[in-house]
Design a protein around this nucleic acid. Structure first.
Lengths: 244, 244
DNA sequence: CAGTGGTCTAGACCACTTT
DNA sequence: AAGTGGTCTAGACCACTGA
């Protein structure tokens, strides 16, 4: 393994250590001391520490002051970290799926009270509503509905446009690029329509994200609700005692 | 504001900036350049950057290369970050509650298939089961059930013991201190019993954590299930586009 | 092109764990 | 006492943004 120019040194070191961890290169889960890694790889200790900090944050390793750095035996069980989800397609790929997308509905409707408040528009403002289903081998996994103020969009979208990830769609057809989402984790009991679309009995519990996407100027751009098949995609996280 | 000895410089700088942000000391949400902060506070730029990285990670600020560092206008909406929850009591305090604890049941039962697998013991092994309810002004907010292999505990616990946070209980009465949890986020439809304890109609949706707590040697110590009143405590998170 | 954050270095000292 | 990770410094250069 040669560490040279290209991506940042920290990224190269991170990737290198990840590979070694996956290969089980560290006996008994013990990772060499930082100074040793630094001289072996020909970088400064600071760079090694940056890389180790990332891995620690991802849950791949943990560190004990005075003792050493160790491989996290449960590191592989975290498939997607909630804060890092950006596209549901990518999230499903992280879970080992190769998802397809189906546009369920594509319509206009006037803003109700909730959407109007979230998007900071007047009630009755025309909204573009896109409902999409993500499937794996024709089995529905995620159902998502996006609402956008219609006058922010520069065209009358067809299904091909709507099938793209919402942030790509907005990059292309709106002046307001998505910068971040504020998401609530909400438990739901699926109604008949949603249960039907997701292929489960009505009354089934589903985790949902209720979220608003904002642009760089902190202006709301899109309101979304997404429901997940709990039997097919599950969110797992690790909580450590004191350190990050 | 004087930066001197005591907690780490980084922590002092972090706390100082947090206060300034909360006080609205930064006009238009713009935080001074790192070099300026460093010389003003009499610390190195590295230290300032460490502090800013923490704040960025907490969602309090965001940074744009070449442009500057800015206050996150939605920073205050994140009350508890999932990865940092350790004690439910503390979590509820973060949400603005002053919770009380009620021990609902305190019993022994043989391990079923699920608990046996999670705790890596044989089916039928005696388990200590503690069920607790966290309330705010007599209104139930969280219901949690812990299962521990009985032979790991050095006493027959009374209600006073069980009312303590589980990690404190284990610190005191077991050789296996909790080091981390692996938690699944699971949507649930409350059955009659749980709905009754939480004071909601049966059939209500609730978010639950299904988790296993491990000691420093990665041995399972406790299996827990916790249900949350969605109308009283909600998990909110922020997802940013590219950077952490 | 000036100013900002991002990366990286080399070295010092401290706090903690282990032997 | 030796070895580990944690904190901190001072300085260099790079990548990007915006006037």
């Amino acid at each position: 393994m040669v560490i040279g120019r290209g991506p940042s040194l920290t990224e190269q070191v991170t990737a290198h250590l990840k590979t070694q961890i996956a290969d089980g290169a560290f006996a008994e889960g013990r990772i060499p001391p930082e100074t040793e890694l630094a001289s072996d790889l020909g970088v400064s200790r600071t760079t090694v520490r940056d890389a180790l900090s990332r891995l620690e944050h991802e849950g791949a390793i943990y560190r004990r002051q005075g003792s050493g750095t160790f491989v996290n035996p449960h590191g592989l069980q975290i498939r997607s970290r909630l804060e890092e989800i950006w596209s549901y397609e990518q999230m499903l790929r992280d879970h080992g799926y190769t998802p397809s997308v189906r546009v369920v509905t594509l319509s206009r409707e006037p803003a109700g009270a909730g959407a109007a408040a979230d998007l900071r528009v007047d009630r009755g403002t025309p909204l573009l509503v896109m409902e999409k289903l993500f499937l794996e081998d024709d089995v529905p996994v995620v159902l998502t509905r996006n609402r956008i103020s219609a006058d922010r969009i520069d065209l009358e979208p067809g299904e091909a446009d709507a099938a793209a990830p919402i942030f790509e769609f907005l990059d292309r057809h709106s002046a307001n690029s998505l910068s971040y989402y504020l998401s609530d984790l909400v438990p739901a009991v699926l109604d008949e329509r949603r249960a039907g679309l997701l292929g489960v009995p009505p009354g089934t519990a589903a985790l949902s994200f209720e979220e608003v996407g904002y642009d760089a100027a902190a202006q709301p751009v899109v309101q979304s609700v997404s429901h997940f098949r709990d039997d097919l995609v599950r969110f797992r996280l690790m909580r450590r005692r004191s350190p990050a």
